[in-house]
Simulated scan of single mutants.
Amino acid sequence: MDSVTFQHILVARDRIAGKIAATPVAASVTLSERLDVPVYLKLEHRQTTGSFKLRGASNAIAWLDAEDRKRGVVAASTGNHGRALSFAARLEGMRAVICMSRLVPANKVEEIRRLGAEIRIVGNSQDDAQVEVERLAAEEGLVMVPPFDHPAVIAGQGTLGLEIASAVADVETVLVPLSGGGLAAGIAAAVKGTRPHAKVIGISMQRGAAMKASLDAGRPVQVEEMPTLADSLGGGIGLDNRLTFSMCRDLLDDVVLLSEAEIAAGITHAYSQEREIVEGAGAVGIAALLAGKVRPRGPVVLVLSGRNIDMGLHRDIVCGKEELAA
């Protein structure tokens, strides 16, 4: 498969119906007044496992045949994919092994452990964790379920785009957190499948934005993975990337990068003005608007992708106690 199509996403919607929540879309009064255009928040952080990742993980599990289900699944994760895959696997009585680097926050690791998955902490990057994934697949026969570069995962994430297009029929711009590209590619394929002229913009952090660096280079490249408030957006896209690089290249209208202070401002606004607790990756759409880095001319939807932030860190950020490097 060279790409994930609108039709694949429609099939995924039917396949995972009842296994995921169709999350609300809410108008933001404060942001709408500030930008003088309608601004809507796709509240995907209210998803069952606290992030959009459950869509792709559920679709990937449903895709497996009986023999693969007996073998169990393995994946590298910055936290949210591992939590989602562990949850989806537990529902089917399957073994799940999640490999993570030392940069993954402890609260995300503990939640994955609570869901019954086996945990491997390996190295200082998602690329290091992926080496362990490949070893386990080769030696123990586990089925790899990548966090983004997999057709069933992309199609599952794309169901979020169908919900956006249904809720805001005249949407002009969608701001999507961008990491490995599964969410951005899926949403872009879904939104443009119903509204071809809508713009889909990927939002990432300045610290180690692998997809942005790869798009600039015209090919997948490696970047140094660095600590960031948007920890869910960390990690590479894979030098042998099969799907998300080309889909993001072809479907995204722009990519915007944010400083740590701008991400913190997004988290703070979500809490103080919208009454929503979101992690750094989930706040990047808000942050991009507050920083003036995106200036939409019509209705805009921001994807609040996850809420799985350490609450001590969240408290420090909203109280202005978190020290941020430039």
Rank of each mutant, 00 (worst) to 15 (best):
L178W: 04
S305Q: 09
L233A: 08
A57I: 14
T30E: 06
I121Y: 00
T49H: 11
M144F: 13
C99M: 08
A169S: 13
T48S: 12
R114H: 12
R275C: 03
D14K: 09
L290A: 05
T23G: 01
E262S: 05
L54M: 14
S28P: 09
L243A: 11
V25M: 05
N107F: 13
V109E: 00
M1W: 05
A137M: 13
L324T: 04
N124A: 07
F148A: 11
L160Q: 02
D240F: 04
L10I: 01
H8T: 11
A76L: 09
N59K: 09
D316L: 03
L10W: 09
V4S: 13
D65T: 03
A138Q: 15
R242H: 12
S101Q: 07
R34F: 08
P296Y: 06
G116D: 09
G182V: 14
L43C: 03
L10H: 10
Q222M: 14
L85Y: 07
L290Y: 13
I237F: 12
S77W: 12
F6N: 06
Y40V: 01
V174G: 02
R249N: 15
G161Y: 10
P177H: 03
P227W: 14
M226D: 00
D128Y: 10
I317R: 14
R242P: 14
E134V: 00
A22W: 06
N59D: 11
A129V: 15
P146E: 13
L178I: 03
R275D: 09
L252R: 07
V301C: 08
G72F: 01
P147K: 10
A217W: 07
V223L: 08
S232D: 06
V74R: 10
I112K: 03
G141V: 07
M226K: 15
T78M: 10
L103C: 07
E279I: 02
I277T: 14
K321Y: 13
A265H: 01
L251N: 14
P147I: 10
A261E: 15
I201S: 00
A261C: 09
W63G: 08
V74T: 08
D231Y: 12
G123I: 07
E279S: 15
S101V: 00
L142Y: 06
R219F: 14
